[in-house]
Design a protein around this nucleic acid. Structure first.
Length: 244
DNA sequence: CTCCAGGGTTTGC
DNA sequence: GCAAACCATGGA
């Protein structure tokens, strides 16, 4: 998503684009039709889930998580496109967030129709040199292999919906360049497996400094992935406060 | 110029 | 099984 102004953001998923603007009375205006809102965006923003209830289940004794959830109370686990997430999170490894954005944007403008995310078919036809020009570095073969497997129908990302969390996790890890962290990110953001908690460098630091090196996520149950998002945001938030 | 990034694979015990 | 080396570039 892109911040157009402090009160206006544009969102993209599959072949849909939408701008949301905050009005003066704290209501919101969206640029799409009512039909598109119901067909696409309502589900995209996971509006049938009550996150307030989920936050209420957080024990007050877990002070870092509790304060993080307070700060990040607007966070929702989006229902994003499977192929978009698979490719984007393969790209994300060992990259900064600004660098990930640049690479994904270049992919979209080079291979995407009308600037949308490229289809598996379009991306599978991309050459090595062209992909390299997107700043993908050593990840180029990963992207080529993944898009070819999906384009050929070797793996049907939609069929994986039926699998259990653990089976899905293992299927995703069968892609080269997909390890534990990326597999859990794709499971969380594309398959809405809200019990999966990706452990990245930020979360590792949090486990180290706030939880004495003991991973708390196994005790968080079916919403562990949502708790992870609160914590990640909490850490980012505190870093922003101390570094600026 | 230097440093390191929302990790994963390969290699060597 | 585990730890360490290695990976290619863009941002800051």
């Amino acid at each position: 998503m892109k911040e157009l102004s402090p009160d206006s953001f544009s969102f993209v998923t599959k072949k849909n684009r939408m701008t949301m603007t905050r009005l003066e009375d704290e209501s919101y205006e969206v640029s799409c039709s009512e039909k598109e809102w119901h067909d696409i965006w309502h589900h995209y923003f996971d509006l049938d889930t009550c996150y307030k209830d989920i936050r209420a289940s957080i024990p007050q004794a877990d002070s870092f998580l509790a304060s993080s959830a307070k700060i990040g109370k607007g966070i929702r686990i989006l229902n994003q496109d499977k192929f978009e997430m698979l490719i984007s999170f393969i790209i994300s490894q060992r990259k900064s967030i600004p660098a990930i954005k640049t690479s994904v944007e270049r992919l979209c403008s080079l291979y995407g129709e009308d600037g949308f995310f490229p289809t598996p078919d379009a991306l599978s036809k991309a050459g090595f040199e062209d992909l390299s020009s997107c700043g993908l570095g050593y990840r180029v073969p990963y992207i080529m292999e993944a898009s070819k497997r999906v384009a050929r129908g070797d793996v049907d990302l939609d069929v994986l919906d039926k699998l259990s969390d653990e089976e899905l996790f293992n299927e995703l890890k069968s892609f080269k360049g997909v390890g534990d962290k990326v597999a859990n990110c794709v499971a969380l953001f594309a398959y809405h497996r809200v019990g999966r908690a990706p452990i990245d460098t930020w979360i590792k630091k949090i486990i180290d400094t706030e939880y004495k090196g003991v991973d708390p996520f196994s005790s968080y149950g079916k919403y562990a992935g949502i708790m992870q998002q609160y914590m990640f945001y909490g850490a980012q938030h505190m870093k922003m406060l101390t570094s600026k």
